[in-house]
Simulated scan of single mutants.
Amino acid sequence: MSNTKISRRIGIVGYGHLGQYLVEEIEKRSDVELAFVWNRTTEAMAGKVPESAILRDLSDFKHREADLIVEVAHPSISQQFGPSFLAHADYMVGSPTALADLELESSLRSAATGHGLYIPSGAFWGGDDIKKMADRGTLQALKVTMKKHPTCFKLSGEIEELNKTVTGKAVVLYDGSVRGLCPLAPNNVNTMAAAALAAHNLGFDKVQGSLVSDPGLRDWHIVEVELWGPGDMQSDRAFHCKTVRRNPATFGAVTGSATYTSFLSSMLGAHSKGPGVHLC
Rank of each mutant, 00 (worst) to 15 (best):
N187C: 12
F153K: 03
T191D: 06
G180A: 09
T191L: 04
G168H: 13
K132C: 09
V166K: 12
K147G: 06
A194V: 04
V189A: 02
T145N: 05
V171I: 15
E161G: 13
L173R: 06
N163Q: 13
T167Y: 13
K147E: 08
G180Y: 08
P150A: 12
R136L: 00
L162F: 14
K131A: 04
N188F: 01
V166P: 08
V171R: 14
M146Y: 13
V178G: 00
L142I: 12
G127A: 01
D175F: 14
F153R: 03
V178S: 00
E161T: 15
L155S: 06
N190W: 00
A185G: 11
D135V: 02
V171N: 10
R179L: 02
C182A: 01
D129K: 11
Y174F: 05
L173G: 04
S156E: 03
T165H: 13
T151A: 11
Q140R: 06
A141V: 11
G168T: 08
N190Q: 03
I159T: 13
K132M: 04
I130R: 03
K131V: 09
K147T: 06
E160V: 05
T145W: 04
G157E: 05
K164I: 08
S177F: 00
G157Y: 07
L181I: 02
T191H: 15
K164S: 15
V144D: 06
I130E: 01
L184A: 02
A170F: 07
G126F: 00
C152G: 01
M146I: 09
L162M: 15
K143R: 14
A196W: 09
T145K: 14
G127I: 00
Q140E: 04
T165G: 10
K132W: 05
E160H: 10
A195S: 08
A141D: 01
A134H: 05
C152D: 04
L142W: 05
